[in-house]
Design a protein around this nucleic acid. Structure first.
Length: 556
RNA sequence: GUCCACGUAGUUCAGCAGGAUAGAACGUCACCCUCCUAAGGUGAAUGUCGGGGGUUCAAAUCCCUCCGUGGACACCA
């Protein structure tokens, strides 16, 4: 990465000048330097602020900066000092190297080994198999899926998992609800109780049950049917899990029992229930593991589940809704009590999704008719929903304006980035197409022959001198280079929304470039040079769109 | 009451491992297609970065406090 390069040579230069006694009282440099891209391009392409050295050196920042730049190695850049800033302006050699790298690495451009093959288990969605997904599940599906793909790209060994809560009493309720619907369809007059699942989807399920003349247990039948529908929708949404882990398996395999036994030193009885001393491990209070009626709580199986996951992973990531925030401490407590490292568990708490309808926020769950994820995808399309759900940091509440998504779907930000990709494709197509004279309709040779075209894609022709490079051209190339940083930042911050941010910036820089530089001209060398940049943009945008989980259309 | 997240332009948000004049999109206004897709670009207007303290050469960014919004505080899952 270029930032790292400039930090490296600057550190080296600091040490050289310090040893030469040019940096006042400073002897050895300790600490960190940060390299930024100045907002104002007149300053340069990269900048390092060395003001923090003034305290140790006890001389003014500009003086320090001037001493440092004398020790910088020769390369194709120019350096200037402004206050405490050392500004670097790149020559074309750097730009050329960037293009070479994108061209040679292709769809692997930006891939790193940062993760060192660390085994990361990422669990998300994990909805109850008691009904269709709602809009909120869509957010975790999009975020989890893109984060997984980005982490793979950053060199992690990622395993995506969906936990099926199929062992609690809500499954009994589901079965009871289905049974009532079946009896209703057979002509019986029934009343759906308060605590039953009253959504219409169970009527459909009941019809199927009757059609198939099934005699299966109602709970089992409904569960399998709901799960089948959920898996189908996830597939349609482009979300792929490596494993659907049923909670009931933990009981079948005796893993819940084993976990409880291992937890024994921290268990006690009170008022007929069994409690886990989670407060000893930082939780605000102790938690019930076995209720007075003898049944386990949801937590009990979840403890066993995390124990199971930890045995086969180096790190666990859970994506949960903000309403589960109180749950983190008890899970981490159990991990520690079972001898694991609670720091291996990262919980990403995502704020909930608000539905905006008729210009008003409707809190989820308070609606009379729930908007399902499936409905939303039908209305807006997979691309729109995935982009929209991923676009914002999970720390902020997401307002999903249904009317806006429906009525102004062409205003959807995903079009902006897809359009940039389509534009690239279009230019590349046109470069080798036969042309016709606009006046006399005579056939003209393509801008580039097939050979010239392929050569341009492989290696960029020599770029003009730095001063003659169009600013928008340079900015675009530097944005391509920035992709490396974006991948690194996503892995570090576990913030996949940065993909959307980058995609939109890259698209912006490309559209800007497009408006200032005619790509296809009679000047073959210039055409080849620009074709190369267009192709590199297409490559990088293609990678990003794939990670975001939306399509990369060649035409729009 | 305790815990978590958030509060930046009319609106939705970015920026927050402190740094050079606080950015984008949408909306408003004015421009740019004889030629590669105008689903695009350029320019203009709009800000007490919730209030108040503090740390620092430097604070939207870090700390404290107050206010506001959403969420969580089960022998539910």
């Amino acid at each position: 990465m270029l930032k790292e390069y400039f930090i490296g040579i600057t550190k080296e230069a600091i040490n050289l000048s310090a040893r030469a006694g040019k940096l006042g009282e400073m002897k050895d440099f300790e600490g960190e330097l940060f390299c930024d891209k100045p907002k104002n391009p007149d300053f340069g392409d990269f900048a390092i602020n060395i003001s923090s050295l003034a305290k140790v050196a006890r001389i003014a920042p500009p003086q320090i900066a001037s001493a440092i730049i004398e020790q910088l190695p020769e390369n194709d850049y120019t350096v200037s000092v402004a206050g405490g800033f050392i500004n670097f302006k790149l020559g074309t050699k750097f730009l050329q190297n960037i293009l070479n790298e994108v061209a040679s690495k292709g769809e692997n451009y930006g891939r790193t080994n940062l993760g060192g093959n660390k085994k990361v288990n990422i669990e998300y969605v994990s909805a109850n198999p008691t009904g269709p997904f709602h809009i909120g599940h869509g957010r975790w599906a999009a975020v989890g899926s893109s984060l997984s793909d980005a982490l793979k790209f950053a060199g992690y060994d990622v395993f995506q998992e969906f936990y099926i809560n199929d062992a609690g009493n809500q499954i009994d309720k589901l079965g009871m609800s289905l049974e009532l619907r079946v009896r209703e369809l057979k002509g019986e007059k029934i009343e759906m109780p308060e605590d039953s699942y009253r959504g219409d989807y169970l009527i459909e399920c009941a019809k199927k049950y009757i059609e198939e003349n099934s005699s299966e247990d109602f709970s089992e039948y409904a569960k399998i049917e709901m799960l089948r529908q959920q898996k189908e929708l996830l597939e349609q949404f482009g979300v792929h899990f490596d494993l659907f882990f049923p909670e009931s398996d933990l009981y079948k395999n005796g893993e819940v029992e084993t976990a409880v036994e291992k937890l024994a030193p921290y268990l006690y009885e009170n008022e007929g229930a069994t409690w886990f001393k989670s407060s000893e491990f930082g939780d605000v209070q102790d938690r019930v593991i076995k209720k007075a009626d003898g049944a386990n709580t949801y937590l009990t199986a979840d403890i066993a589940y995390h124990y199971n996951k930890l045995k086969r992973s180096d790190e666990l990531i859970n994506i949960w809704g903000a309403d589960h925030h109180g749950y983190i401490a008890r899970i981490k407590a159990s991990v520690e009590a079972l001898g694991g490292d609670p720091n291996c568990v990262t919980v990403l708490l995502g704020q909930l999704v608000n539905i905006i309808q008729d210009g008003e926020a409707v809190r989820m769950g308070k609606r009379k008719t729930m908007v399902t994820l499936e409905d939303l995808i039908d209305e807006v399309g997979v691309d729109g929903v995935r982009y929209w759900m991923l676009m914002r940091s999970i720390d902020t509440m997401l307002d999903f304006d249904i009317d806006l998504a429906k009525s102004q779907s062409d205003k959807n930000p995903v079009f902006y980035v897809q359009y940039a990709y389509a534009r690239c494709c279009s230019i590349l197509r046109k470069a080798i197409e036969t042309r016709f004279d606009t006046v006399d309709k005579k056939e003209l040779a393509p801008f580039l022959t097939q050979n010239e075209f392929e050569a341009a894609l492989k290696t960029p022709p020599t770029l003009p001198k730095s001063n003659d490079v169009d600013p928008s051209f340079k900015k675009l190339i530097l944005k391509l280079e920035e992709f490396n940083e974006v991948i690194e930042a996503i892995a570090r911050l576990k913030a996949p929304y940065l993909l959307c941010k980058y995609a939109s910036e890259l698209a912006g820089d490309f559209h800007h470039f497009y408006n200032y530089n005619r790509v296809l001209t009679e000047d073959k060398n210039e055409t080849a040079m620009r074709i190369c940049v267009v192709n590199c943009t297409k490559t990088v945008m293609g990678i990003v769109l794939k990670l975001i989980g939306v399509s990369a259309p060649e035409r729009m």
